[in-house]
Design a protein around this nucleic acid. Structure first.
Lengths: 223, 223
DNA sequence: GCCCTTGTGGCACAACGTGCCACTATGTCA
DNA sequence: TGACATAGTGGCACGTTGTGCCACAAGGGC
């Protein structure tokens, strides 16, 4: 098994139907992630040993390190949450990515079922803990960095060769930061899952403001 | 001595005139930082032990950990570079922070002497190494996060009570990201230290686009 | 000179993260 | 069903990380 890929690409939700081994692996990874999240939020990341996480998840220490590169990385899948979801949704759109992003964010950050709502609860708890926990903050930064990198490639693909690299980069940053700030502001307060004050609401508002000066294709000035 | 403060607040350049002890401390910290930067860029961060850095800097391993919390943090002061400088310059301005930021960035990111140029060289080398070095990338993320936090407080102070917290947050993020992207894009290419393609040029361009939708005070709609 | 503060080095130690080997379970083919 | 290749798991050893503790030496004030 490769260790980095599932931590970033695997959805925190259960995978549909695959081989028995694959399903067990996904389940184990999620089990470890949740055990780590519970222990981290309860005692602080630096007070929790990797062995404690492994024991709580019912695996050996050696196996723990086969799933995650570091102790803190264990909560990566929970923090990544729906990042992959809305990026894949964006990749499936056509036309101007800047114009498509708000609707995609709105749709993908709004929880549509209990599974999504549960995912938001994990994210909120972890983000609140991460505010004053350098180790967890590092994971959050890494998750957002990975998100920005993927987004940059997606937007570049959508915008085509005419798009300026610097503008593509700005667009990817604006979108990533919008979602990041939306989630952070929501987690810090007592906002609802949907409607005004929700992650989807805050993120779309943030993106509207950050992206107003960005145009992926050169403006047709005159000609 | 406290360990975190100098790593973030101390300029990478030599301090003017203080007590002998204070100057020795600053020199030692800079010595360690440069030793770490050289070794990291040469062999990759994960191939360099903390002991090797300490030996290269002429201090014991124990002393190394009194200056920096982790092995990677050693390059923090070099990556932070002039971040404090331009933020302090911003704090000294009056009026609308959004309007003041471009000039401050332009002025502070443009190297005015050999010391500043040398600082830019370190930053470029480290950023190039950080692209494919997760450990160094983490330091870069932390540096930018700290920068964003401080900037948020500065902008809030300048904007006054009328300013919306969410807008202040967006402004701080836009400014931090502008500088970050400017430096990253410059480091990745072969841009000059000044003029078109310089960090100052790229950062101000980025901020102009990211900040166009941000207004710190409620628009006087109608009266 | 004395004294207090502060930086430094050495040592021990818990925890981190990995390489290696053996064991077991899954899935396939005969 | 039995044999086999594949892949996940656990145990162990080991180098490295980062910290607590104590002793020692070098500024700085009296």
């Amino acid at each position: 098994m490769d260790r980095t890929a599932p931590a970033q690409a695997a959805p925190a939700q259960a995978a549909p139907a695959q081989s028995l081994t694959a399903r067990r692996k996904a389940a184990t990874q999620l089990e470890i992630a949740r055990a780590a999240a519970v222990l981290f939020t309860e005692h602080g990341a630096d007070q929790v040993t990797a062995e404690a996480i492994a024991a709580s998840a019912g695996v050996s220490l050696r196996t723990f390190y086969r799933y995650f590169r570091t102790k803190e990385d264990a909560v990566g899948p929970l923090l990544a949450g729906g990042a992959d979801a809305w990026q894949q949704a964006l990749a499936a759109t056509t036309g101007d990515p800047i114009a498509a992003i708000p609707a995609v964010i709105e749709a993908q950050l709004t929880p549509r079922d209990d599974l999504a709502r549960e995912g938001l609860r994990w994210t909120r708890g972890l983000l609140r803990a991460a505010v004053d926990d350098p180790a967890l903050l590092t994971v959050w930064h890494r998750v957002n960095h990975d998100s920005e990198s993927r987004l940059q490639r997606i937007i570049a693909g959508l915008a085509g060769d005419a798009a300026d690299d610097f503008e593509v980069r700005l667009a990817a940053t604006a979108a990533t930061d919008a979602v990041r700030i939306g989630l952070e502001a929501w987690a810090a307060g007592a906002g609802p899952d949907t409607g005004p004050g929700s992650p989807a609401d805050l993120a779309t508002r943030a993106f509207a403001q950050l992206s107003r000066g960005i145009a992926l294709v050169p403006e047709p000035t005159g000609g």
